[in-house]
Amino acid sequence: MATQRILDFLATRRPNGPCLVVDLDVVRDNFRAFEKALPDSKIYYAVKANPAPEILRLLAAMGSSFDTASVAEVEMAMDAGAPADRISFGNTIKKERDIARAYQLGIRLYAVDCVEEVEKIARAAPGSRVFCRVLTDGEGAEWPLSRKFGCVPAMAVNVLRHAKALGLDAYGVSFHVGSQQTDLSAWDRALGDAKKVFATLAEEGIVLKMVN
Results as ranks from 00 to 15, higher is better:
9 F>E: 11
11 A>F: 02
12 T>A: 13
19 C>W: 00
22 V>F: 06
23 D>K: 03
29 D>Y: 01
30 N>A: 08
31 F>D: 03
31 F>Q: 03
31 F>H: 05
33 A>P: 02
36 K>H: 04
43 I>H: 00
44 Y>T: 06
46 A>R: 00
46 A>S: 13
50 N>S: 13
51 P>K: 07
51 P>I: 10
54 E>M: 02
56 L>T: 12
72 A>G: 15
74 V>C: 12
78 M>R: 01
90 G>T: 05
92 T>C: 07
93 I>T: 12
94 K>A: 06
94 K>V: 08
97 R>M: 10
98 D>R: 00
98 D>P: 01
100 A>C: 01
103 Y>V: 02
107 I>L: 05
111 A>R: 00
111 A>W: 00
113 D>M: 03
119 E>K: 01
122 A>P: 08
124 A>Q: 01
124 A>H: 00
130 V>E: 03
130 V>H: 02
132 C>F: 04
132 C>V: 12
133 R>Q: 10
134 V>I: 15
135 L>C: 11
139 E>G: 14
148 K>V: 15
150 G>I: 04
151 C>W: 02
151 C>T: 14
156 A>M: 07
157 V>H: 04
158 N>M: 07
166 L>I: 06
169 D>E: 14
178 G>Q: 09
194 A>P: 08
195 K>R: 13
199 A>N: 14
203 E>R: 14
203 E>C: 15
209 K>V: 12
211 V>H: 01
